[in-house]
Design a protein around this nucleic acid. Structure first.
Length: 496
RNA sequence: GGCCCGGUAGAGUAAUGGUUAACUCGUCGCCCUUUCAAGGCGAAGACUACGGGUUCGACCCCCGUCCGGGCUACCA
């Protein structure tokens, strides 16, 4: 392992960042945002993005979740240059570092029962008088000076935090930080061996630092829930003879009730947003603006995001995940993306719904493109193309009961739709104005407003109350379908 | 309990210590109109958490309070 870390900053070292999820669940929005910030930073500065899986907690980690996390990152468009590396394969290096620390006197062996410290609040035996001041944390273990008769092969290793003084580190978001060493406990770096095992494993604090040194990480960008533990890590860098990186703790993402995002807030995994039919670039744009901003800019395509991203623009305040704004972004992208960039997403959506015809990508591509262009101003999510717009792609669609209720009230409609079918079928030219005239002529002859016929016709040919302007809809559907569907509607109306 | 970090309309953000605190989403209204969106225009919504100070002048600096969050493990 190389212990010389490259100096940070852009002058003498290339920027190297990492995203280091632990496989205890799916990729959630908070992790995705952290990954995105790392990625934007790396890409904007010509740096390197490393992916590392932090799977040192054998009990809680599930390897099968790793693939899901990678899928989430791929969907998000966050790629990496090195890795994925697995911490579980690097344990020996971590152990060696701990032993070296102990040998150098920077750490010491401790065989106190773990239960003494378990439960979050490690307490010393206190008398009743002290109790009201609350539990007091043990920051220095009794083993610290060295313990007679201690069996090192069966003990944990604790870091020997300096007495007095302060530990500092640089945070690009929160500024220079300084913590009194007396506030930092002698934390464990190497666990005592579990039953039946020869050696114990490293703790998170040790693993991250050893790996970040080894991978020559220059900027550690992660959630601000880690900021309180950073002094411990800064201490480890020093003890291991390495220069600490620049830290950048980014604010947390909260649910609408301002508590940390969790399952009870509904969708928290990026996979669920993919499944709902959000466009990755829209999701990226939204995520980037959660805790980061640059002036008034909001709609920024990814190259622009990369160009403008900087750690200076990162906020210190936790942000609430606002679903309506995410949807707004999706609508914007659905609308503004060059049509050719959008088509592949819709193709897979239609494939999933078993509505896709291969010729739409070849001979009938122009028709497909035009149809999508017509549809997209009123879609919010990808599945809209397969649900309410189904009639544009298939003859197997239902007439929405609500649409019927709304626009098929008039009794005369049955005969009028039949007459409309006849006159459309007789048209010499099939174009917007011809259809328009035919319909308005009929409306005039029947003494009804054109709107009545237009709305009723829309229901007849697409089964929905909501659709693009009628005559354009007729054109993309084609005369045969329009006439057939009108006649079918006449039958349906006759039954009632 | 202890330590740390935050607090600008419902949400995300902006404002070298210097007009009437700006923008986006959402909400409401109007226009467009053939339904629904999109789009255009406009409105409501903030005693910048609260209370003190410093200053000619404070969202901004200082102190206190309250609220929120994080950490406080041989989890990560």
């Amino acid at each position: 392992m190389s212990m010389n870390s490259s100096a940070h900053g852009s002058l003498d070292g290339k920027i190297r960042v990492r995203f280091a999820p632990s496989p205890t669940g799916y990729l959630h929005v908070g992790g995705a945002r952290t990954a995105l910030f790392n990625w934007l930073f790396a890409r904007s500065r010509g740096g390197t993005m490393v992916l590392r899986i932090e799977d040192t907690d054998v009990e809680r980690n599930r390897l099968e979740l790793v693939e899901g996390i990678l899928d989430g990152l791929r969907w998000l468009g966050v790629d990496w240059d090195e890795g994925p590396f697995f911490q579980s394969e690097r344990l020996e290096m971590h152990r060696e570092a701990a032993i070296r620390l102990a040998a150098a006197g920077a750490a010491y062996y401790c065989d106190c029962p773990a239960e003494k410290y378990a439960g979050g609040d490690a307490v010393e035996e206190t008398d009743d008088a002290k109790k009201e001041q609350g539990p007091r944390r043990v920051t220095r273990c009794a083993c610290r000076p060295g313990k007679a008769g201690l069996d090192a092969s069966n003990a944990a290793i604790r870091f020997r935090v300096p007495q007095g003084g302060v530990t500092r580190f640089e945070d690009a978001v929160f500024g220079p930080r300084e913590v009194s060493n007396d506030e930092i406990e002698d934390f464990v770096v190497l666990r005592s061996p579990k039953e039946g095992q020869a050696r114990g494993g490293p703790t998170y604090q040790l693993s991250v630092v050893v790996d970040d040194i080894d991978m020559r990480i220059t900027h550690v960008i992660r959630g601000s829930d880690h900021i309180s533990n950073t002094p411990k890590q800064a201490l480890l860098y020093l003890a291991l003879g390495a220069t600490p990186p620049i830290f950048a703790h980014v604010p947390l993402i909260l649910g609408p009730d301002r508590t940390r995002m969790s399952k009870r807030h509904g969708a928290t995994s990026v996979g669920s947003y993919r499944d709902e039919g959000f466009l990755p670039e829209a999701f990226r744009n939204f995520l980037a603006l959660l805790g980061w901003s640059i002036g008034d800019a909001e709609f920024m395509r990814t190259p622009e995001l990369i160009e403008k991203f900087s750690l200076e623009g990162v906020s210190r305040t936790n942000a609430v995940f606002d679903r309506p704004k995410l949807e707004w972004f999706n609508v914007q992208y659905l609308q503004k993306l060059p049509i050719d960039e959008l088509l592949p997403y819709i193709q897979s959506e239609l494939e999933r719904a078993k509505l896709w015809e291969p010729e739409w990508a070849s001979e009938k591509r122009e028709w497909f493109s035009k149809t999508i262009d017509l549809l997209r101003p009123r879609t919010r999510l990808l599945p809209d193309f397969a649900t309410w717009a189904r009639a544009f792609f298939s003859d197997a669609f239902e007439i929405d009961p609500a649409a019927r209720e709304k626009f098929w009230k008039d009794e005369r409609l049955g005969s009028m739709l039949g007459k409309l079918a006849d006159s459309l079928a007789a048209l010499s030219d099939w174009n917007h104005d011809a259809c328009d005239h035919a319909l308005r002529e009929l409306a005039a002859a029947e003494g009804v407003k054109a709107g009545l016929l237009i709305n009723a016709t829309r229901v007849a040919i697409v089964g929905q109350a909501v659709a693009p302007p009628l005559f354009e809809t007729m054109l993309v559907l084609g005369r045969d379908r329009v006439v057939t569907r009108l006649r079918k509607s006449v039958e349906i109306l006759a039954v009632h």
